[in-house]
Structure formats: structure tokens, C-alpha cells
């Protein structure tokens, strides 16, 4: 290319060369380039879109909080059972845990029956209830694991406090938990 140009430019100004031979060569060169040209697909926009999708999934996948369940099996409330209670069933006095909203504090006020310490939060409630649970492996304990426990939440109590108490009772090893009687 360089040699071709230098030969053609001998003795004349480079920009003024308009001879017929030079035009033919240029057309041939252009024709040759066109034959060698490859058909290519521009994939840059596709890569852009693909990376946008990738970044979207990367960002959204980790932000969804994993939900978990506190399982509870509700007793079947049949009409016969409600109308005609079992006369031979022993009525066990449930352990009542009161949950009341505290106006001056963010956390609710949790109250246990007399004889048990007053917990400051749900973590302490779980410890107290675990210590009070009867266990054959260790000495002490007042209540068996199937002792009925009733969570008496005030109507104004926050749901997180009520669920926190339920979670603490289950974590302490009790299996029979009731809601109600808080109003």
C-alpha cells in the first residue's frame, strides 16, 4: 500500500493524481476489500443487556429475607366438643404469661405468675421457663413439657412481642401453648 502510493506519487502532487489507471486500481482495491470483508454481528448491545440482567439478579437475590415458620397445630374446634366437654378430662391450670405494652419503653412488659421471676425480655423469659420445666435428667423443675401455657396478650401489644414470647416458650421446650385472655 505504501509502495503503491509512493510509486504513483512520483513527480506529481499526491492529491492531484486523477489518471484513469489510478482510478481503475482504486476500484479494484475496493472490490478486493469487499470480497475479503466478513459479515459480522454486533454483539455489544447483547452483552450490555446480558450484564444488566446479571447485575439485576445478583442484587435482588441476596436482598430477599428468608422467611421461617413458627408451627402451631390448632385444636379441632368441633361443634360437639364445644357443646359437650369431656367430663373426665382433668382441668390443668395453665401457666399464664401476660404481654402488655409498655408506654415508656420500646419493649413490652412480660409478666409471669407469682413464684417465678419477672423477665426483662424474651431471652430471659426463655431461660426462666427452661429452668422451670420438669426434666428427669436434672433436678428441679415445676412444669412438664406438656403443661398448658397461655399467652395473654393485651390488645394493644405489638405482634413482634407476642411472637417473641411464643418463640421463647417453644424454645424452652413446652408443647402446649394457647393464646387468649389478655383483654
Amino acid at each position: 500500500m505504501t509502495a503503491h502510493r509512493s510509486r504513483g506519487s512520483e513527480g506529481a502532487a499526491p492529491s492531484a493524481d486523477t489518471s484513469p489507471r489510478r482510478s481503475r486500481d482504486r476500484r479494484a482495491l475496493l472490490r478486493g476489500d469487499r470480497e475479503r470483508a466478513r459479515i459480522s454481528l454486533s454483539i455489544t448491545p447483547m452483552i450490555d443487556v446480558v450484564f444488566q440482567l446479571l447485575i439485576y439478579f445478583l442484587l435482588t437475590a441476596g436482598l430477599v429475607a428468608k422467611e421461617r415458620n413458627l408451627r402451631a397445630e390448632m385444636p379441632p374446634e368441633t361443634a360437639e366438643a364445644a357443646a359437650e366437654p369431656d367430663p373426665f378430662a382433668l382441668d390443668t391450670e395453665p401457666l399464664v404469661i401476660r404481654v402488655d405494652p409498655s408506654p415508656d419503653a420500646a419493649r413490652a412488659r412480660i409478666s409471669l405468675p407469682s413464684g417465678l421471676a419477672t423477665p426483662r425480655d424474651v431471652a430471659e423469659l426463655e431461660r426462666i421457663l427452661r429452668d422451670a420445666r420438669f426434666d428427669e435428667a436434672r433436678a428441679g423443675g415445676l412444669f412438664p413439657a406438656d403443661h398448658p401455657i397461655r399467652i395473654a396478650a393485651a390488645p394493644e401489644a405489638r405482634w413482634e412481642d407476642v411472637v417473641g414470647v411464643f418463640n421463647a416458650v417453644i424454645a424452652a421446650g413446652y408443647r402446649s401453648v394457647a393464646f387468649g385472655g389478655g383483654s
Partner: peptide
Amino acid sequence: ATSTTGGAR
């Protein structure tokens, strides 16, 4: 857990 709603049993 076995749970109930309503008043005391």
C-alpha cells in the same frame, strides 16, 4: 407446638 386461641381452658 399445639396451640389454641380463645380463652383459658
